[in-house]
């Protein structure tokens, strides 16, 4: 199997804490090795924000910031065909949110419990996705897809986004494993 790049966010923060000196002084790239096998991530600090880099993932333009209406989701496939995600402007700031209000986020719409499609259950009032039509799991989109009620034992996978000056929003990576897959970059896993 090809070696895939991933990081545990919390572990990363710990490590980045240790390596703060390096990051701050040179905007250098931190490479982390956690656990029994190499889990890598590249990250750099841009201004106040730590910028994650997912070298293996495609870099795809999915929408333009100026076209987004708060509460109206946009659907797209990422990182590969068949892996459906939802981009939404929450109207309140969110973890890993982008845009001037840090409120634009994107998540997989396959429930991380047993895979039911969550396309139709976005609730704008609370900024949640759910209850899931199958077993009612509910995910908080402003808190990195945390399961706030229900059955899932993992967060809803979140798409890492970047925005450039023209307002183009690009999907550049993924936190978490999409339901049904052994690896997000599945074709690579299959090759391996």
């Amino acid at each position: 199997m090809a070696e895939l790049q991933t990081v545990d966010r919390r572990s990363f923060l710990k490590i980045s804490g240790l390596a703060t000196g390096v990051v701050l002084s040179g905007g250098a790239v931190v490479a982390a090795v956690i656990g029994p096998r190499p889990l890598g991530v590249a990250a750099a600090r841009q201004g106040e924000k730590v910028q994650f880099a997912f070298p293996e993932y495609p870099d795809v333009i999915i929408a333009n910031l100026n076209d987004l209406v708060a509460g109206e989701p946009v659907f797209f496939a990422y990182p590969q065909a068949g892996q459906k995600n939802m981009l939404v402007k929450l109207g309140k700031s969110a973890e890993e949110g982008i845009g001037p209000e840090s409120d634009v986020v994107a998540f997989s719409t396959a429930c991380s419990h047993m895979g039911a499609p969550l396309d139709n259950v976005y609730n704008h009032e609370y900024g949640i996705l759910g209850p899931c039509p199958l077993h009612y799991s509910t995910f908080d989109l402003s808190k990195s897809g945390m399961n706030v009620m229900g059955k899932a034992s993992d967060h809803l996978p979140q798409v890492a986004l970047q925005v450039d000056d023209s307002g183009d929003i690009r999907a550049v990576g993924m936190f978490g494993l999409v339901y049904g897959y052994p690896a997000n970059l599945f074709a690579r896993a299959k090759e391996g």
Binding site: G82, M114, G115, Y181, P182
Partner: peptide, 16 residues
Amino acid sequence: DYPVGPLAGQWIAPSM
């Protein structure tokens, strides 16, 4: 046969 569909009961979530 991966990927598996909803309710397959064969997906290994990261927590598992």
